[in-house]
């Protein structure tokens, strides 16, 4: 039996805020929006789990909840056996988040300086940092550009740096939110190869949110398709789609007027 790494139980996020100035008379009324509803998910060690779904489906919100950046409003989860709500420190030590948010670097510093800073925050010793930075730069093909300021990088180069940062600490679980956004086809292929040959084959677990159905079909062991905060379908690609392509299955599922929320 395979070991469970991520387990969520009715994980839900309802954002609430005061109506505020937009409607002065009802200033203190609460408006709420449920971005993620009752997700029950189990992911095993060494799996690549794809998170699919249209814009606004709740993929990023779910990912951030599992990374402790957003507090769930209901439900709970464990990551590597640690309770998401009560053992945040241990959870953080077990995960890396690789997002396509290019703002999450210091633009005025070089790629290398950025990596040095975050390596320290990930708890790498100075010695380990000196070893590890050239390794991750090599993996993402940024060795030659490491000394340039982050602001000078192209979109894809920024994305490569995000990958490099996520790889610094070698945790057990990788959350990747559209990691291939802006990458050229060669870099995408390299990333896929890397995920399989270096991560999952070594017992790492990857949650991969993506809009690229071909990518999902190629690399993911299982996928979950979200819409309106719900998990609409979940399973192995071959089992979900049967003879059809994942793309056909996805479009049918999302377009189904009855299930639309």
């Amino acid at each position: 039996m395979s070991e469970t790494v991520i387990q969520t139980n009715n994980l839900t996020k309802e954002f609430t805020k005061l109506r505020g100035i937009s409607s002065p008379r009802n200033f203190f009324d609460k408006v709420s929006f449920t971005a993620v509803r009752g997700i029950n998910l189990t992911v095993s060690r060494g799996e690549i789990f794809g998170l699919l779904g249209p814009n606004g489906a709740g993929k990023t919100t779910l990912t951030k909840m599992l990374c402790t950046l957003i507090l769930p409003s209901d439900g709970n989860a464990t990551i590597c056996g640690y309770d998401l709500a009560r053992q945040q420190a241990q959870v953080k030590a077990s995960i890396a988040l690789i997002s396509s948010e290019e703002r999450s670097f210091y633009w005025r510093l070089s790629g290398r300086r950025n990596l040095e800073f975050f390596a320290a925050l990930y708890g790498l010793s100075r010695r380990r940092t000196r070893q590890r930075i050239p390794e991750v730069l090599e993996i993402v093909g940024m060795s030659d550009a490491a000394e340039r300021r982050f602001q000078e990088y192209s979109t894809g180069m920024k994305q490569r740096m995000a990958l490099a940062r996520g790889l610094l600490a070698e945790p057990d679980v990788f959350f990747m939110d559209e990691p291939t956004k802006g990458l050229d086809p060669v870099a995408v292929r390299n990333l896929h190869d890397f995920i399989r040959s270096q991560l999952t084959s070594r017992g790492k677990t990857v949650i991969l949110a993506t809009h690229d159905l071909v990518e999902a079909e190629e690399v993911c062991d299982r996928v979950g398709i979200m819409q309106g905060g719900r998990m609409k379908a979940e399973g192995k690609v071959s089992e979900l789609a049967g003879d059809a392509s994942l793309s056909d299955f996805f479009h049918n599922l999302i377009a189904d007027p009855e299930k639309k929320s």
Binding site: C67, T68, L69, A89, K92, A93, I95, A96, L97, E101, S104, F105, F118, L121, Y122, G123, R165, A169
Partner: peptide, 8 residues
């Protein structure tokens, strides 16, 4: 956010 996901 990038800082807060690190074990710091």
């Amino acid at each position: 956010e990038a800082m807060l996901v690190t074990p710091t």
